[in-house]
Design a protein around this nucleic acid. Structure first.
Lengths: 248, 248
DNA sequence: TTGTACGCCGTACAACGTACACTGTTATGA
DNA sequence: TCATAACAGTGTACGTTGTACGGCGTACAA
C-alpha cells in the first residue's frame, strides 16, 4: 500500500505527501501508470485492461504496478479522474442558457465517445478527485444563468448528464454486434416464427435488431430527440430567459 | 452447446424445439437454472453469482449447469428476460398520459429496485426474448395517448426508461459505501486541505460525500425532480391533452 | 438386444488479481 | 565512513473464475 487513494488522486497538489528520496529512482510514476492505462482502455476497452498487460506496456514486471497503484479498482478511479481533468472545457461565456446546456451535453457526449470505458466505471470515489471536482464545478457554473438555487441546479445538472450517459451508451458500438450478426440469418427466421401475430410492434423490433447498422443511426435520432426534450424540460424552470428566443 | 440462445429464450413457446426423450430425466431445467440464478443475484448481486455457486445451489455439479445454459453471458440474458416476463404490468387503462407515463416510470423503478443487478447487464441480446418484447410492447401501448408517430413514441419511451435507469443507479446502495465510510475520518480532513479555497462549490461536494446516508435522500429528490422534468418535456409534444389538468 | 442421444460429472487449463518474501539501491543519521 | 532505514522492483504462489474435453451411465428407438 504505497499511498492512500485520496493522496494519489491529488498527487499533483503541493500539499500532497511527497515520495521519499531514498531508494532507486522510480522508472514509472503513478501518473505514467494511469496514463498508460487510459491509453490501453481507450484502445481496447476495460475488459482487456489487465495488470499484466499494463505492466508489459510499461516495461516493468507485473507486481511493480502495485508500487504505484493500490489495486485495480483504485486504478480505475485514478483513470476516471485523469480524463476528467484533461477534458476540454468549452467557454460557456456567451449565449443563453440553452446554448450553455447544449454545450455541456455535447462536450460530455464527445468525452464519453473518446473514452467509452467511462461508462463501465461506476465507482463513486471518483468524485473525490481534483479532475472530477473541477469538471463538476465548471458545469455547475455553466448552468448558473438558469437562475436556480443550489440544490435544484445540482439536480438539473444530474438530469442532463444522466441523459448524456444513457445516449452515449446507446451510441457505443456493441462489442457483441459481430457475434449477433453472425447468428442473425438463422435467428431472425426463428424469431419471426416465435413472434407470429403476437406483439403488434414486434416487427419493428425485429427490423431494428436485424439492421444492426441502423443502431447508431437510431441512437443519433434519440440523441437529438432527447436533447430537445431536456431543453424543453429545463425551460419550464427558467421563466424569464434573456435572449431565449434567439439561442438554442 | 445445448440449444441456441434464441431457442432458450423462447423455450416455453409451442414452436420451440423440444428436448429429446432419451437419456436420464433432467434433474434441473433451463428454467430452474435461470430461476435459481435470479434468486442468487437478487440476494447477493451479480459479482458473486458464479457458475459454481449456482450449481451448488441447484444440487448438481458445476459443469452440469452448462447442459442447460450455454455460457454465463447467455445466462445473464436469460435472467433479464425472465424477470422482464415476470414484471407486473400496471393497468394503464384510465387516466391521462401523465398518469400513464408516471406509472411506467414508477413500475420500472420498483422493478430495478427489486433486481438491482439488471443495471449491470448491458447485453443487447435480451431484446430478442419474449419477456423483454412483451414489456416493450406494453409500455409502447401505455404511451399511445400521447399521439405520437411510431418513431417518436419509441424515442420518448427510451427517454423515460433511460431516466429511470439512471435514477435507479443513484438510488442503489453503493457496495463500496462501507469502505469509504471507514476511511472517511482521515480522508475528509485531507480533502479539505487539498480543496482550500478552490472550487467554490466543492464544500457541498464534500458534505454530500461525507453524509453517505444522505445519498439515498438526495437520489430521492433527484427522482422527483427528474420525473417532473420528464413529464414537462413530454407535455411539449402533446399539444391537446384530454384531462390534462386533473391528472399527473 | 443393440445403438444412440442425452444428462451428468471430474479433471484440467488459462487467465485473473494480488499477498508475500526477497533483492538491490539510495539518501540519511551516527 | 559506515550502518540503517526507506524505497523500487521482482519471482513465486495462491485462490478464484469460466469453461473445454472426454468419459460414464441412462433411457428410449430400432
Amino acid at each position: 500500500m504505497p499511498r492512500d487513494l485520496i493522496d494519489l488522486l491529488w498527487r499533483d497538489h503541493p500539499a500532497a505527501p511527497a515520495r521519499g528520496q531514498r531508494g532507486p529512482r522510480a522508472r514509472v510514476t503513478t501518473g505514467s501508470v494511469v496514463e498508460a492505462a487510459v491509453a490501453l482502455a481507450d484502445r481496447d476497452g476495460l475488459a482487456t485492461l489487465t495488470i499484466r498487460r499494463l505492466a508489459e506496456e510499461l516495461g516493468v514486471s507485473t507486481m511493480s504496478v502495485y508500487t504505484h497503484v493500490n489495486s485495480r479498482d483504485d486504478l480505475l478511479v485514478l483513470m476516471v479522474d485523469a480524463v476528467h481533468a484533461g477534458m476540454e472545457r468549452p467557454s460557456y461565456g456567451q449565449g443563453g442558457w440553452r446554448r450553455r446546456v447544449r454545450s455541456v451535453a455535447e462536450a460530455n457526449l464527445a468525452h464519453l465517445g473518446a473514452h467509452p470505458w467511462l461508462l463501465d466505471v461506476t465507482d463513486q470515489r471518483s468524485a473525490l478527485g481534483p479532475g472530477t471536482i473541477a469538471k463538476y464545478d465548471a458545469e455547475l457554473a455553466a448552468l448558473y444563468p438558469l437562475g436556480l438555487d443550489d440544490v435544484t441546479r445540482d439536480a438539473a445538472l444530474t438530469f442532463v448528464l444522466d441523459f448524456v450517459r444513457a445516449s452515449a451508451r446507446a451510441l457505443r458500438p456493441d462489442p457483441r454486434a459481430g457475434e449477433l450478426a453472425e447468428h442473425w440469418p438463422t435467428w431472425s427466421v426463428r424469431l419471426a416464427a416465435y413472434l407470429g401475430g403476437d406483439f403488434p410492434l414486434a416487427r419493428r423490433v425485429g427490423a431494428a435488431a436485424g439492421a444492426a447498422m441502423d443502431a447508431a443511426h437510431d441512437a443519433g435520432m434519440a440523441w437529438e430527440f432527447g436533447l430537445a426534450r431536456v431543453l424543453d424540460a429545463l425551460s419550464a424552470l427558467a421563466p424569464q430567459q434573456p435572449g431565449g428566443i434567439t439561442d438554442g
